[in-house]
């Protein structure tokens, strides 16, 4: 399988990428290519111009700025798995990244490419909602920042406009006493999430001060489960309270049905994986 014909252009900087995008109507950015190239090979996507942004070095760093970790959009999943800053400050991200595809996929795929693609079965959307990340976007008209909650809008749909590029993802360093985990039931061949649960709890004297629980894979887009969060906050974190909270996970949400898993199975898995994730944190 070979993609249809396109013109290849390389951008050396963000401004050059934006200029090329403005000049070429039917164009797409190419980052790691691990979502785009498979879709182009299947001819589900046939852009006439590819703008290779993978050589823009300013988008590859992981830095700490005050109480935030700023991850360039071109940082690969593998770099997140191995980053000491991320491992020590927001371990849920390196843990989650280590479950994406396989090593070869993680060596190529980027965090920016994953969120721009917004596959409902991808892992980053759920993880980034739980850590309450912000997406930094640049366009011809300037820079803006969007909360991930508002960034993801549906199946393969985001708040990004045609002429914009994601430059970074900002993650607040969680308060002390916060623990997080990402657990997923994966499609055995691709390892995409059939259901994934990203849970983060701030615990003080055994009591849950703050809970963030996001479910990915299960529905058309990942969703924070506010019901579960409310059932945990202010409560002692014991097995019974966790079981009670997990029982209501995903309630009222229209789940996806596919040949991998029916909607009722996904409902069930949502509860099971929420419980497993939460139990592992106490």
């Amino acid at each position: 399988m070979i993609p249809s014909v396109f013109t290849y252009k390389k951008a050396g900087s963000v401004s050059e990428a934006l200029q090329l995008k403005a000049e070429n109507e039917d164009s797409k950015f190419l980052a790691g290519g691990h979502s785009l190239i498979p879709t182009m090979k299947l001819r589900l996507s046939s852009p006439s111009v590819l703008i290779d942004i993978s050589k823009i070095d300013t988008l590859r760093s992981i830095t700490e700025e005050g109480n935030q970790i700023v991850i360039g959009s071109l940082v690969t999943h593998a770099e997140i798995v191995n980053s000491d800053v991320i491992k020590t400050k927001v371990a849920i991200m390196s843990e989650g990244a280590s479950m994406i595809g396989d090593v070869q996929v993680r060596n190529c795929g980027t965090i920016g490419g994953s969120i721009a693609h917004a596959d409902p079965a991808a892992d980053w959307p759920a993880i980034l909602k739980t850590v309450e990340a912000t997406v930094v976007i640049e366009g011809e008209s300037g820079k803006r920042e969007v909360n991930v909650e508002d960034f993801f809008q549906g199946v393969f749909t985001t708040d990004l406009t045609e002429d914009e590029i994601i430059t970074a993802i900002k993650v607040p360093v969680p308060a002390s006493g916060t623990k997080g985990t990402y657990q997923k039931f994966m499609q055995p061949a691709s390892r995409f999430a059939i259901v994934g649960c990203a849970a983060m709890l701030t615990i003080s004297n055994g009591v849950c001060q703050k809970a963030r629980v996001t479910i990915g894979g299960a529905a058309s887009t990942s969703f924070r489960d506010l019901g579960v969060e409310k059932a945990l906050e202010g409560k002692e974190l014991n097995a019974q309270n966790i079981e009670n909270a997990s029982k209501i996970a995903g309630n009222g949400v229209q789940m996806t049905s596919s040949h991998f898993a029916t909607n009722s199975y996904r409902q069930h898995l949502t509860k099971v994986y929420t419980q497993r994730a939460l139990e592992s944190l106490i």
Partner: peptide, 13 residues
């Protein structure tokens, strides 16, 4: 030095 699947990478990359 990093492993990658060459069926999913363009030669130009």
């Amino acid at each position: 030095g990093k492993s990658g699947k060459s069926c999913t990478i363009l030669a130009v990359q």
